[in-house]
């Protein structure tokens, strides 16, 4: 928790799901991707979501981020009930209050790194705060790559551009879905250190889906899912403890 947060932002919960249930398909063949999940994501903290493949991690993240809707239950970003928002309001929510890092294909190929980073601001007709931009760019170590297009950047660099973009609007929460999934271990380390840095230095809230125990070990707290249910939690995780826990889940 950062002492820099103003009183009005001094919420302790950045996002909350209550009784979240998501069904795919209908009738007997319906898949229960989320089954009555309730959880509060603490503000200013780095939360990792783990679980075996198909356990509902991505589904949970997408529903949290307003990219997908629940079958039943509630999702709140801050005080905002996501289900009550129209498509336009959801778009503005994503643009102004959320940040995203996907596993692949994070960048618009026609735009330079710099243009990709400031894209959410430009979409809102705003200009970047130059100091903040410089700070973020320096932190991801991309100062000399800003004029390059995605095709001219390595996978790790691309993911760091995406991370910078996710942070540039100073969003309430950054959602990351397996951001290191396609990276080698060195690039993964760079990206994860940067995310950790954002939490520690700027009080950024981050929710990250991963199945890599090493990646999850950068988080403050790990949430374990199986078959769409929350099965356990862990604070101050280490890679070894996570690995053990995962074994317990049957991975």
């Amino acid at each position: 928790m950062s002492v820099l947060q103003s009183p009005s932002e001094a919420r302790t919960v950045a996002a909350r799901v209550v009784g979240a249930t998501k069904l795919y398909g209908r009738g007997d063949s319906a898949v229960r991707a989320l089954d009555d999940v309730s959880f509060e994501f603490p503000a200013g903290a780095f939360t990792a979501i783990m679980g075996p493949s198909g356990s509902g991690k991505s589904t949970l993240l997408h529903c949290l981020a307003g990219l997908d809707t629940l079958t039943s239950g509630q999702v709140c970003i801050g005080d905002t009930d996501v289900a009550k928002l129209s498509d336009g309001e959801l778009t503005l929510l994503r643009r102004n209050r959320l940040g995203f890092i996907f596993q692949t294909y994070n960048l618009v190929p026609t735009l330079t790194a710099q243009e990709n980073i400031v894209l959410p601001l430009r979409l809102g007709g705003r200009n970047a705060d130059p100091e903040w931009l410089a700070q973020v760019v320096a932190a991801v170590g991309l100062a000399d790559r800003l004029g390059h297009r995605p095709a001219e950047l390595s996978g790790g660099q691309q993911q760091r551009v995406a991370a910078a973009r996710a942070l540039v609007t100073r969003p309430e929460i950054v959602f990351a879905d397996e951001p290191t999934g396609a990276l080698d271990s060195r690039s993964s380390g760079e990206l994860l250190r940067f995310l950790r840095h954002a939490v520690d230095e700027y009080g950024q809230t981050i929710v990250m889906v991963t199945h890599d125990p090493v990646a999850a070990s950068y988080a403050d707290r790990v949430l374990f899912l199986r078959d769409g249910r929350v099965v356990s939690q862990m604070t101050e995780p280490t890679a070894d403890r996570i690995l053990d826990a995962m074994k317990g889940l049957g991975e």
Binding site: R95, F100, Y105, L107, V108, L119, P120, L123
Partner: peptide
């Protein structure tokens, strides 16, 4: 398709 989806995800409205 993917690029458009990405743009929409990071805050591009349908109108845009």
């Amino acid at each position: 398709t993917r690029e458009l989806g990405l743009l929409r995800a990071v805050g591009m409205t349908r109108r845009q």
